[in-house]
Design a protein around this nucleic acid. Structure first.
Lengths: 150, 150
DNA sequence: CTAGGCTAATTACCTAAGCTAACTTTCACA
DNA sequence: TGTGAAAGTTAGCTTAGGTAATTAGCCTAG
């Protein structure tokens, strides 16, 4: 059976999606510089730690799909901000377990509530079904990312 | 009437979308480093020039929502790669008009065809209606960006 | 039970791509 | 025609990605 979605459409959609993501991500970074005190990257990592519980830096690097040195730096920053805590890994003396502390959870909750954030501001101008489309797109992007985990 | 989409949902969706975008954008950058020869940013700018025809650097900076010095650097790079051309702006001696040349159009077409690109690869594993959701999300993101143009 | 190799984390350094500030050239108009 | 604003660039800062090299801890073969 012929594919419902021929490859030309797919690569075209891929291009459009890619450009939209790149541009939106740029806008997000720019806004974060303003006020929040935490860059979009740092926020995403903090959310990841929160979701995955105590986790080693290496696991986290894999989750976020960055290299370990990059994660080392991000974690150092989150630690300096007092949002995470490390405990020695009982199973491996080379490693440690990273977890979000109270301050970090508070910060995440606050960020999640921010009505004036770039995206929240814009979402409020959309129809409910458009918001729903974006919510499902977000879930799909995460799923796509996780699928390639191996 | 009560909003179909209460603010709590909105800010929550905003958070999820934001993290998904940040992470996907990271993955895109990483892939681009590999092979394509053009970063996602440079690609997005090239596509923008192609879409908007001959355009001044300032207009382009506004379109992409970056500052002028940033655009100067990106244009310098695209020019070095031989993908764009500048002609003096007949209407303003301080400025110039930037346009994609044949090599640039060829490059864009090639990128659009790349079936092995990060997103294209993953889109092929989704249902058609999921692909459709992402396509609509891309359009929405672009629209949201343009709405704030002022 | 230890030698050698593997792995986790870090450090040092490079690059891309945002930004602001400051400078030059050109424009516009009072 | 002189002055202020605007376009583009240059210089320099920051963040966040990367690789290579180092250190410390783990594990296994002999």
């Amino acid at each position: 059976m012929a594919a419902r979605t021929p490859d030309t459409d797919l690569t075209d959609t891929a291009s459009q999606l890619r450009n939209a993501i790149v541009r939106t991500s740029r806008a997000l970074r720019q806004e974060a510089a303003g006020e929040s005190g935490l860059s979009p990257n740092q926020t995403a990592v903090l959310a990841s730690i929160n979701r995955s519980g105590p986790v080693t830096p290496s696991e986290l690097a894999d989750l976020e799909r960055v290299k370990r040195p990059t994660m080392t730096r991000t974690l150092a920053c989150l630690e300096r901000e007092g949002l995470i805590e490390r405990t020695p890994d009982p199973a491996d003396g080379r490693s440690s377990l990273v977890a979000v502390n109270d301050a970090g959870r508070e910060r995440l909750a606050r960020l999640r509530r921010r009505k004036s954030a770039y995206l929240a501001r814009r979402l409020r101008k959309l129809d409910p079904e458009e918001v729903e489309t974006l919510a499902r797109a977000a879930a799909l992007l995460e799923r796509m990312r996780e699928d390639e985990q191996g």
